[in-house]
Nucleic acid binder design. Structure first.
Lengths: 304, 304
DNA sequence: CGCGCTCGTGAAAGTAAGTTTCATCCGTGG
DNA sequence: CCACGGATGAAACTTACTTTCACGAGCGCG
C-alpha cells in the first residue's frame, strides 16, 4: 500500500516518554490512563509489577499489555526496563523549576521565565532526539529534487511555514507559502510529480492543511506532514511524516513550545538541503545578506 | 533465615556496578561468573531473562537469585531494573555531539540534527538565564497599561514580531505589526505617551527598526528593543532593552538560533502579560481556540 | 428504529519467569 | 572413613506476564 504514512514507522530511539505522550491521544481511554501514569512518573512505573500498575490505572493487566504493544514494546518487562533507563537518564529537576506542568498562579516573572525556557529547551531537544534521520534524509532528497515546493500552515503554524518558505527561497529553491487556503489549494492543484507539498499542523487535525496535502497528493506530488501527533489525520495524506515532541502546558495555548519544535525541524531540513550544495548555498546566503546590508547601520564594530 | 552471608548492609547509592565488582571476590564461584557477566555488560544483562542469564553464566537460576541477594537486591527484576538504569546513565556522557561550532562539511543528517538542536536549546537556555526579570517586569507593566502596542521587525525578526503581535491580540491587547517600514513609521508617528513600541533586530543594526523606535520615542511612547547585542545602535533609542543570547554559527546565517531565542523572550513577555489577568486571558484564549474549532477534524481520539 | 459490526474491555485460562525447597555433591577436618 | 557444611542445580512452587474469549457499548447501515 503506497498510501498512508508508513515511513515514520516506530522510531523511538530517544525519549520513550516523549514518544508515549505523542501517541497519547490516539490511545483508547483505558490505555490513556496507563499512559498518563507512566508519563507522570516513569521511575515509579518501572518499579511496579504489571498487576500493580493495572490496578493503579484502574484497568486490567490485559490493557497494560495492549498499551505496551501500542507504544511499540514487545511486552511489559521491556517497557519496564526502558522506563527505568529513561528515568535514570533524566537527572531532571536540577532545581525546583516547574517542569512540564502549568505555570502556578502566584508565579513571579523569574519563575515564569525559568519555566518557559526549560520547557522550550526540552521541546527542542526532545524533538531532535526523536526525529528520524532517515525520514529527514528522504524529505531533504525530495526538496532538493523538487521543481517546486509548497509550504502550508494555518494560524501559528503559518509562521513556521512562512519561515521555511523564506529559508528555502534564500538558498535558491523555488518555494511558496500561501497564508490563505483557497490560494494554497489552487497552487496545490498545479503541483505534479516531483514537486513537494509540506503541511504543518501541531495537532494534525487542521482541515485546511489536510485538504492542501490531499490535493497535492492527488496531483502526484510528494507530501510531507509536520505534526506533534504521529497518528493524527494529517499523517494519512502524507508520504513522509515528521513529528515534533512538544508538550504544551495548559496555559500556553498559544502553542509556544510546539512552534519552537517545529522551527527546529525546519532548521534541520534547511541545513540538510543547504548542505547538499554547500558552496552554492553559502554563496546564495551571502548574496542575500549583502542585499540588505544597506539597511544596516554601523557596519563595523558596534558602539565602543 | 538468619544465616545468610550478607555483605552489604546499607544500599549502594552510587554505582551498582562498582558495588558488585567490589564484592566480587567474596562471592562463590558460580555467583562470580554471573557477576562478571553483569559487570562487563550491564545493559545486555538487563535485557536477559533470568534463565537466559543463568545459562550464559553456566549455572542455574537459583544461583542468579542468590547473586541478586548477595548484592543487596530483593530479586531478579529489581536487579534488572537497576542495571538498565545504570547502563542508561553511563551511556549518556560519551555523547559526542558537535558542540558550539559550525557544522562540519561532511556531516550526515543525524549530526546536523544533533548540532542544531544543541545550539538551539542552548540559545533558549542561555537567553533565559541572562534575561533580567526586572526589565521584563517593566516591559510587561508597560504593555499591560498600553493603549496601543506597535511591534516591528524586519526580515527574519519580522516573523517574531508578527508572532508577538498575534499573541497579544489573542489576549485582547491592541497590538499591530507592520511588515513594511513606511507603514510602520506612519503608525509610530501616531503613538503617544502610554503607548508601547517594540523593535526586534538580531544584530541591533537594522536601520528600519531603529527609525521606527526613534519616531515612536519622539512621540512619547515607551520603546523596547529586543536584540542579541546589548550595545548595538538600537539600544540607544530604547527605554528598555531585552537581549537574547544566541551565538549563530557561521553556516546558519538564516538566523536560526537567534530566532528561537527571540521567541523565547516573546513567550516570556506574553505569559507575563497574560498572568496579569489570568481569568480574562484564559477566557480570551479559549474563545479564540473555539473559533477555529470548526477547522479541525476528528474531534475525539485520533485514528485507531 | 433496530440490526449487525466493530472496538474496547476485563475475566479467566494459559504460559513463562522468577523463587523456594531440597537432595546431591564435594571438600574438609575429625 | 565418616560426619559436616557450604555450594550447587533439579524440580516444585509461586508469581508475573500473556493470550484468549465473551460481553457490552457505540456506530453506521439498512
Amino acid at each position: 500500500m503506497a498510501k498512508s504514512p508508513k515511513i515514520s514507522a516506530s522510531h523511538e530511539p530517544g525519549g520513550l516518554i516523549v514518544h508515549i505522550s505523542g501517541l497519547l491521544p490516539s490511545l483508547s481511554p483505558a490505555e490513556q490512563r496507563v499512559a498518563r501514569l507512566v508519563v507522570s512518573d516513569p521511575a515509579d512505573a518501572a518499579r511496579r509489577t504489571i498487576t500493580d500498575l493495572a490496578t493503579a490505572a484502574e484497568t486490567s493487566e490485559a490493557t497494560v499489555i495492549r498499551f505496551c504493544r501500542s507504544v511499540g514494546m514487545d511486552g511489559y518487562p521491556q517497557l519496564r526496563i526502558r522506563l527505568a533507563a529513561e528515568a535514570a537518564r533524566r537527572i531532571e529537576p536540577p532545581d525546583a523549576r516547574v517542569v512540564g506542568g502549568d505555570i502556578p498562579p502566584g508565579a513571579d516573572l523569574a519563575q515564569i521565565i525559568a519555566t518557559i525556557a526549560f520547557n522550550d529547551a526540552r521541546a527542542v531537544e526532545e524533538t531532535a532526539e526523536q526525529l528520524d534521520p532517515a525520514v529527514c534524509e528522504q524529505v531533504v532528497e525530495a526538496i532538493v529534487a523538487a521543481g517546486r515546493i509548497d509550504v502550508y500552515g494555518a494560524g501559528a503554524s503559518g509562521f513556521v511555514a512562512s519561515d521555511f518558505q523564506q529559508k528555502l527561497h534564500r538558498i535558491g529553491r523555488t518555494a511558496f507559502y500561501f497564508p490563505d487556503v483557497h490560494t494554497a489549494l489552487t497552487s496545490a492543484a498545479l503541483l505534479g510529480r516531483g514537486d513537494v507539498a509540506i503541511g504543518i499542523s501541531h495537532t494534525g487535525t487542521t482541515s485546511d492543511a489536510i485538504e492542501v496535502l490531499e490535493q497535492a497528493r492527488a496531483r502526484g506530488a510528494t507530501t510531507v506532514a509536520l505534526t506533534n501527533f504521529p497518528r493524527s489525520p494529517i499523517t494519512e495524506v502524507a508520504d513522509f511524516v515528521l513529528t515534533t515532541a512538544a508538550r504544551e502546558t495548559t496555559y500556553r495555548s498559544g502553542a509556544m513550545a510546539s512552534r519552537l519544535a517545529q522551527l527546529t525541524v525546519v532548521d534541520c531540513l534547511f541545513v540538510g538541503v543547504a548542505a547538499r550544495n554547500r558552496a552554492k548555498a553559502r554563496k546564495a546566503l551571502e548574496a542575500t545578506a549583502e542585499a540588505v546590508r544597506s539597511r544596516r547601520v554601523g557596519a563595523g564594530r558596534r558602539r565602543a
